[in-house]
Design a protein around this nucleic acid. Structure first.
Lengths: 259, 259
DNA sequence: GCCTACAAGTTGTCTGTACTAGTCGGAATG
DNA sequence: CATTCCGACTAGTACAGACAACTTGTAGGC
């Protein structure tokens, strides 16, 4: 987009814009590389690089000899959107909210120190927050940070904004994360905060986030109300779209009736 | 690998081989593009294309100016592996098993017909199977097929092999699928088959599979024991690895103790 | 009218060159 | 001895040209 960014990135941004605004309709053929080259006044390389990026995200498809076609638009959430509850909610047009349940400093147990790759008994910061969508409880988030990183949070206004935003302004930028998804039964704290029955099924996402140097900056355990959020992946033989978090339409369950 | 396949694909295969066999160790630097060009006797293009493919799958990482490094090997499951329980288990070195609970033909209810995009009261085939890993119950799978597709299964040996394999030999090939992941409480059938308490949390994956023409060929509802399987996604600012299904190490939960 | 063969157009692939931006290690410096 | 600085090296970007593989629409033949 910027003048300084590489040419292929600008072409990519322009093409995404054309797809999003419908200049290139789903099912339509994308203009040929030759005409794009003529239009943008570049060589074929950057154009192909931009098209390859679109293709990698499933926005277009193409075979040899045939012009690529615009696919049904897969949203393709960015890293930030996937990492940050706040960003995610905003993108969906929902109002994110949060209530801090606990923000504490404590020495790391052996398990926690292993997760965070620090020495046992080193201080860590634990933050437990209830996350809301449009004012309704949606997720309970427990995060652990090494003290050096978490200390920026203890003094911050956690009820106001995103943890990630706060960390980024403090110079701690997550660039890599690993998410493990499974299901767990609601524990007392979730019963209280999410207003569910004891033992109710919750969708759990455990997250390990790393900074650019590869050091662990956060380990987290998010527990979603299944009715409020689900995860979606679209799959094809040629291509796999990245995992996407979806706001929960508590839709009809085909099989509940059958049993 | 083949002589006929494109050069960059052969280079890619060779590089993957070197990473898998440990010629290029994780954490090591990959030889510079220049030396690869010299070794393979090609120009820089195909080498960079192969490296880009490795990078897209998260196997290497690189910044400008610095030689790329081999990352911890993320397995990168293929479409088939992700679709088929049988394939997935085999790839992990586990023995997949199945027991058919029910295989029936019935008219579609309104909900089912909507899912399968067929007329109400059209016959459908429903198959309920218990899936095993190393002989232990791992997942309960309920699949619905339009009759024209499902009829191939009613006569097949479902206890022996994969549904997808059977369908493929009958000329029905899934090429696209959409998976929605959430959590549900165990119902009576799961209590009985998976040996869990009533209401126990299960990891649910609902799947809609399409063939090359875009017609729905299956809708399914898989319910995993969280201890037996989880889903993993690795994430970075530059790149997102596709979702991966992982066999469940019933590992320690950091937070269970804390509550 | 239907099918086949061909020609034009398009994408995939590969080579070669050149420049820019960034990294890395060793030499010079304090 | 630690730090800084600089030069060599590396990857990212871009351009130009050429050929191969494939699709598609058209013109011709049956």
């Amino acid at each position: 987009m910027t003048d300084s960014s590489p040419l292929h990135a600008r072409l990519y941004a322009e093409m995404v814009h054309r797809i999003r605004t419908g200049v290139w309709q789903p099912g339509d053929r994308v203009p040929s590389e030759k005409s794009l080259v003529a239009e943008f006044g570049t060589s074929r390389g950057p154009v192909r690089q931009a098209l390859a990026a679109l293709r990698a995200e499933g926005m277009i498809s193409g075979r040899r000899g045939a012009p690529p076609r615009v696919q049904r638009t897969a949203p393709a959430q960015s890293f930030d959107t996937f990492m940050s509850f706040t960003e995610w909610a905003r993108e969906l047009g929902l109002v994110p909210g949060q209530r801090v349940i606990e923000a504490s400093r404590r020495p790391a147990t052996e398990d926690i120190s292993r997760e965070l790759q620090i020495e046992p008994d080193t201080p860590v910061v634990e933050i437990i927050r209830l996350r809301l969508l449009d004012g309704k409880p949606a997720m309970l988030e427990r995060s652990l940070f090494p003290y050096e990183i978490g200390r920026h949070l203890l003094s911050a206004d956690l009820d106001g904004g995103s943890i990630y935003q706060t960390l980024c302004t403090a110079g701690v930028v997550p660039v890599r994360a690993r998410h493990v998804i499974d299901a767990v039964a609601a524990h007392p704290l979730e019963v209280e905060q999410l207003h569910v029955q004891p033992g109710a099924p919750l969708l759990r996402v455990r997250r390990l986030a790393y900074d650019v140097l590869g050091t662990v900056i956060e380990t987290a355990d998010d527990r979603y109300l299944p009715a409020m959020a689900t995860f979606v992946v679209e799959n094809s033989a040629e291509h796999r779209t990245p995992l996407t978090r979806q706001a929960g339409s508590a839709d009809v369950d085909l099989f509940d009736r059958a049993l």
